[in-house]
Nucleic acid binder design. Sequence first.
DNA 1: GTGGTCTAGACCACG
DNA 2: GTGGTCTAGACCACA
Lengths: 130, 130, 130, 130
Amino acid sequence: MIIHLDFESKTPIYTQLTDRIIAGIAKQEIVPGERLPSVRSLAADIGINLHTVNKAYKELEQKGFILNHRQKGVVVNPDGVPKADVSFQKEMKEILHPLIAEAICRDVNKKDFMELCEEIFTSYVHKEES
Amino acid sequence: MIIHLDFESKTPIYTQLTDRIIAGIAKQEIVPGERLPSVRSLAADIGINLHTVNKAYKELEQKGFILNHRQKGVVVNPDGVPKADVSFQKEMKEILHPLIAEAICRDVNKKDFMELCEEIFTSYVHKEES
Amino acid sequence: MIIHLDFESKTPIYTQLTDRIIAGIAKQEIVPGERLPSVRSLAADIGINLHTVNKAYKELEQKGFILNHRQKGVVVNPDGVPKADVSFQKEMKEILHPLIAEAICRDVNKKDFMELCEEIFTSYVHKEES
Amino acid sequence: MIIHLDFESKTPIYTQLTDRIIAGIAKQEIVPGERLPSVRSLAADIGINLHTVNKAYKELEQKGFILNHRQKGVVVNPDGVPKADVSFQKEMKEILHPLIAEAICRDVNKKDFMELCEEIFTSYVHKEES
DNA sequence: GTGGTCTAGACCACG
DNA sequence: GTGGTCTAGACCACA
């Protein structure tokens, strides 16, 4: 899995990193139980600060995506990722609300918006599953 | 239009404010050509600094939602808001991608996600129009 | 002479007004000795504040474009407009410098820039004179 | 690059600053990819408030002259500055129109005006290129 | 009274 | 140490 970051983006690097890893899990490029590179090696690979990788891993751990075993190192949660809870529902709403409001103002068709979501959805879902 | 902000939130106050105003325009609580409160009065109303309101207004102006009329003051763009362009399409994708990726990991059904979007959409669209 | 102002412009109304009057003189739509409308009537015509018209007139007077006769009212300077002095030379430079610098950065050809100036020049100069 | 500002001038400090930086880019004293001083250090150097510098940087960023690299800091756009678009064409016209109108009134020869532009143009263009 | 500009000082997120 | 955000208070130009 190649991780490409945009250093000129408004999104913090650590957020981009967590997003990329979550995308990898969604696409099943990384599977439960699989080992992730160590903080040190990943930082060196990408060419970013240790703290930044660490912060990304901490966030993923807090969200239940990964576990930090003293021996095995960092692994994707073998039990799979925690299901969507109330807090994630709330997060989705908080993100979608302003986005959809602006879309409406800008005359984006509901149908077009839905098709965009569809498109993104299928871009992630593994073939066998769809 | 009553504007309620969450001062504990991680999203900056000025962003919340722009979001609320965009929502107001989407719901047609505020219509093109209508006057918005002055920076100072809105700041006083909400209980925040005028610079914070100013920043929100500037952002809305830059997006083409509002403009500064030398006689009327701050008004919602009478020509309506600029249609979705490539840059907004890109913005939508950048927001939706990580959200949908995480949703997939968390086992959110595509159907459920779509229904959530539907629900939010209809919450904005004016009755007569839907 | 019809004066059209843009109330949504960043340029102050009084500046737009002086610019329009100077343009009128340049195009010889208004000639030396000709009477301009009174502050009061012009303000009413355009639908702006008295003070604003007054400020424009004051600026034109200070630049030597118009005179304020107690009896005749406001007239275009019968002796013609004062020739370009050092101060106007300086003003031209101060305006042209940043404009040309940005034009160079933006890859505007010197030739193209010159042609634009030519075009604007001829748009003002009276036929018989060119 | 030494930046000298006129604190007595009518043009806002932040505008003077952006102008000076654009001039530096035009003269190739600053090249694409090059790092600009941090907001704080530049503010300290010039002896102005950091917010004023920030405003200048934001304006340059919005115009596409510079961007904020999360690792390198503020850098001149490595892809070069965006070419002149319709909006810049319009801006040029809005600046040149009143200037040329007044020049005509003040009996400035078209030839003289052109020579002034020439002179300013060549003052920016790098020797090797002209 | 309105927004524009400038200053000053403070806290936090980021890297 | 960097920029982002927020507050506060001040002066001025504009209408």
